[in-house]
Computed example of a mutant assay.
Amino acid sequence: MPSEEQLRDVEHAMVAELARLRWRSGLSLKAVCDAVGGGLDPTRLSRILRGERAMSLWQFVGLCRVFDRSPGRLVDEACRVMLDPLALRDLAPFLELMPKRK
């Protein structure tokens, strides 16, 4: 069973990957929010993608859909990143932009 700290690290990697996918897509925060729907606003999305606010399950699934990723694959990739130093190196610039969670 993963520790609480390991789960936070995986969550952090998932958020960093979503931020990277948004950056690569070139979509504005508003365009992503419109695609996700459900009342997600750009300010909240920005805070989610900076790791300042937790996302709900529907927001996570909606973001995965917008970026054409299966939620399971994104979770698997986040777990791999936290265990593979080379993968972690690739995501490091995005992880460094996010504040540390307490």
Rank of each mutant, 00 (worst) to 15 (best):
V15K: 02
S28C: 09
A16K: 00
M1I: 01
R69S: 14
G62N: 03
D34F: 13
L97R: 02
R24E: 13
F67Q: 07
L21F: 02
K100R: 11
L40A: 06
L97Y: 04
P85C: 06
E52G: 15
R20Q: 15
R44Q: 09
A87M: 11
R89Y: 03
I48M: 03
S28W: 12
D41C: 14
V15R: 01
Q59A: 15
L21G: 04
V81L: 03
G39W: 03
P42Y: 08
G37M: 03
L86K: 15
C33A: 12
A13M: 08
A35M: 08
V75H: 02
D90M: 11
G72I: 08
D41F: 12
L63A: 06
G51E: 00
H12L: 08
A16G: 03
L45P: 01
V61F: 04
G37K: 07
A35G: 09
R53W: 07
P71S: 02
W23R: 04
A92L: 15
L86I: 14
L91G: 08
Q59E: 12
G62R: 01
L49G: 01
L74C: 01
G26A: 12
R65W: 09
M1P: 12
D41Q: 14
L7C: 11
L63P: 00
V75K: 05
A13C: 10
L49I: 00
M98D: 07
R89V: 08
R53D: 10
E52L: 13
P85V: 13
E52P: 06
R69F: 04
D84F: 10
G39M: 03
F94T: 00
R20N: 07
A92V: 10
M98H: 10
I48T: 02
E17I: 07
S3P: 00
E5L: 13
L49D: 05
S46C: 08
S46T: 04
L97F: 05
K30T: 10
D68R: 15
R89C: 00
